[in-house]
């Protein structure tokens, strides 16, 4: 089969999706946590926008969960095109709602065609989910793209529910990262940025890498 030539056009870069699931419950409003998360996310997006990977388009979506249900704070778009709007924290921790929305978002074939690289998904939380989350979590991590994703969970402070985050990260390529206080969020996000950047520079960005250095060993 031959396709019609499209002279003077260039091939579209292949999307590499990064999804942030951000806990914006009331507890995030204290101790500078939401401010730290906002600046760390914005910094990560800015780094992706600066990447000069000619064939890869890092696309970012941010889903926030607070109040009564999750919402798509930033729909998938190229990092360079994102006009970052800070998130505000209030209300409950509807993780189940966030995972259900994430499942829809990563499987939207119009936004993310099959030529896309596998996603990197970052779940950030500082507390206990308080909606029905077990079903959505199993569904998400067992889904076609959810199971292939690099799933990183960021536990903020001592109250984060590690049992939930451990299940989310799984035992394969995932990892639970700890930010003991707000200012460590930035370091953890830089580490996530490094893993994505390293994928964009690798021969096979979809290969799974189990040998990421520990965040503590990196120089940022």
């Amino acid at each position: 089969m031959s396709t019609q030539r499209q002279d003077f056009t260039v091939a579209k870069a292949r999307p590499l999706p990064v999804i942030v699931l951000a806990d914006v419950s009331g507890s995030m409003a204290v101790e500078g946590k939401i401010e730290a998360l906002n600046s760390a996310t914005a910094e990560m997006i800015a780094s992706f926008a600066e990447l000069q990977a000619e064939r890869i388009d890092v696309q970012v979506a941010v889903i926030t969960f607070g109040g009564e249900c999750a919402s798509l704070h930033t729909p998938f778009q190229s990092a360079a095109a994102i006009q970052w709007k800070p998130m505000a924290a209030a209300g409950r921790t509807p993780l189940g709602s966030a995972l259900t929305l994430a499942n829809e978002v990563i499987h939207n074939r119009e936004r993310l065609p099959s030529r896309s690289y596998r996603p990197t998904i970052v779940l950030v939380s500082d507390g206990q989910p308080n909606d029905a989350w077990t079903g959505p979590l199993e569904c998400f991590i067992g889904s076609e793209r959810g199971q292939k994703a690099d799933r990183f969970a960021v536990a903020i402070g001592a109250d984060a529910d590690l049992s939930v985050l451990n299940v989310f990260a799984g035992s394969n390529t995932g990892r639970v990262l700890h930010a003991h206080e707000a200012r460590e969020i930035r370091k953890v996000f830089r580490w996530v940025t490094m893993t994505v950047t390293a994928r964009t520079q690798s021969i096979n960005p979809d290969a799974t890498n189990l040998n990421w250095p520990d965040p503590g060993d990196l120089n940022f």
Partner: peptide
């Protein structure tokens, strides 16, 4: 086109 429109593994 076969690579650009195909799965990422085609690139390798």
């Amino acid at each position: 086109d076969a690579v650009l429109d195909g799965e990422p593994a085609m690139e390798e």
